[in-house]
Design a binder for these strands. Structure first.
Length: 420
RNA sequence: CGGGGUGUGGCGCAGUUGGCUAGCGCGCCGCGUUUGGGACGCGGAGGUCGAAGGUUCGAGUCCUUUCACCCCGACCA
């Protein structure tokens, strides 16, 4: 991508209506645009980051047998009435509208009901189970107060996976598998070491649900950590009996603020029964499908990563999430510099290394500042001065060290570095 | 939804006890000089001062209503 072709524009000043660091940085860097409170649009570079986050999640969900699909956003009241989750008195986050007189529709804020209902079409025998289906969906929720930039919006993107198993044993095995997959997801995003499996309130079919909480001061949740066991307990369930049951010592726990980046629930027959999701077992007996749901906040992760992976100069995307690998900046307008910059851009692009080529007629300081603000992992500079030093200057976003490299060495170096 | 705060060119802000063609910085356009950490000079464009109503000879400024946004709280992935 040539910078001169992008509609991207960065800002020096922070927007006055954003307090949260993640929103300030992402807006300054031109990754997102605020439409209204708690509602953001994703601009080309922000969209790439979002897609990169999704891709990591997608790979890990596919690896444990997930089948990706996409449910509708518009929801019919009927199926939600059958689980008593349509009434505003029961669920207060519904955005609702009407098709016509006396005919309501809702905008999906979660999808247990439609997914369960849909499965009645495909599940009738024990041979049809288990089923693991997931989607990336824009969820709409009428939050009374959205805040913290991308961390709590009225419109946000979530990965939600639903498992449909024959029985608890089969369910529990998959539940454990999801837990492992989630840890891989967070590891790959560079927040594995500060993300804890956390015990939270359960429901009729499980004593606890589990959250994945990433330690951060911007978090809304308070958790108690056992750092040696790599476990945490949400404050909401941190009674003495619970700690005892989990084998945790209260005085060994540390209180921290954390951001919920994922959760996994055991639902059992809670939605299957009212929605008519049954199967016939080996003995010819009808059984309710044993279900679970598993969420990861995709857009929330983007906000959290911006919050955590940043410094005083701007964003610092982990490899694999950045919108591209290299920020190539040409300095000055000498013929030779221009020629070699174009050459390197073509060369890297051909080798499959994603590049933003800053070909604008701007001063060096501005290009350096943009490379930093955008948080691109590598900065490659070509100028009269760098040519005199023997090639291109390569610098990592996370380091101040500059190395001189030749064009032919670039792609190998960048490919190797990207894998590390 | 309770408490606090803010709305003035695309962005960030100033605007005194009401007073004259509403300013400044950034950004934008043109010309020139510049070129290793967000340059400088000269000349430009761009505003129903959030909206509606009211008081007044006169309202960005005072009053009423309303909308939006931010922060704290309650609620929530």
């Amino acid at each position: 991508m040539k910078r001169s072709d992008l509609f991207l524009k960065t800002r020096k000043e922070v927007p006055s209506d954003e307090e949260a660091k993640n929103a300030q940085l992402l807006i300054r860097a031109g990754y997102i645009h605020k439409e209204m409170a708690g509602v953001y649009s994703y601009l080309p570079l922000g969209f790439k980051v979002l897609e990169n986050i999704k891709q990591i999640v997608r790979e890990e969900m596919d690896a444990i047998g997930g089948e990706e699909m996409l449910l509708s956003t518009l929801q019919h009241p009927h199926i939600w009435q059958s689980t008593d989750r349509w009434d505003d008195a029961k669920v207060d986050v519904w955005f609702k509208s009407a098709l016509g007189e006396g005919s309501e529709v809702g905008f999906g804020w979660s999808h247990e009901e439609p997914m369960s209902r849909l499965m009645t079409q495909f599940v009738s025998s024990y041979k049809d189970l288990p089923v693991y289906a997931y989607q990336f969906q824009t969820k709409l929720r009428r939050e009374l107060r959205s805040k913290s930039g991308l961390l709590r919006g009225r419109e946000f993107i979530m990965k939600d996976l639903y498992s449909f198993s024959r029985n608890r044993e089969e369910h529990d095995k998959f539940y454990a598998l999801v837990e492992q997959a989630y840890h891989k997801v967070y590891d790959r995003m560079g927040i594995g070491s500060i993300t804890y499996k956390t015990f939270a309130s359960g429901g009729p079919f499980a004593k606890y649900s589990h959250e994945f909480q990433t330690i951060s001061d911007i978090g809304e949740d308070t958790v108690y950590l056992d750092e040696t066991k790599k476990l945490a307990v949400n404050q909401e369930v941190s009674a003495d009996e619970v700690l005892q049951e989990l084998g945790l010592e209260r005085n060994g726990l540390v209180e921290k603020k954390a951001v919920e980046v994922g959760n996994i629930f055991t639902f059992g027959a809670r939605y299957s029964e009212p929605l008519g999701l049954f199967y016939t077992d080996e003995n010819g007996v009808q059984q309710p499908v044993f279900a679970g749901s598993y969420g990861i906040g995709i857009s929330r992760l983007m906000g959290l990563l911006a919050e955590i992976k940043s410094d005083e100069h701007g964003l610092v995307w982990p490899a694999g999430l950045a919108p591209c690998k290299v920020y190539l900046a040409s300095l000055g307008d000498e013929e030779e510099v221009r020629r070699q910059a174009n050459d390197a851009y073509g060369y890297l692009t051909d080798k499959g290394v994603s590049v933003i080529y800053d070909d604008r007629d701007e001063r060096p300081g501005e290009k350096f500042a943009d490379a930093d603000l955008l948080g691109i992992p590598y900065r490659l500079v070509i100028s009269q001065k760098s040519l005199e030093s023997g090639g291109f200057e390569l610098k990592k976003r996370t380091s101040t060290e500059v190395t001189i490299v030749q064009k032919d060495g670039l792609s190998a170096l960048l490919t190797k570095a990207g894998q590390a």
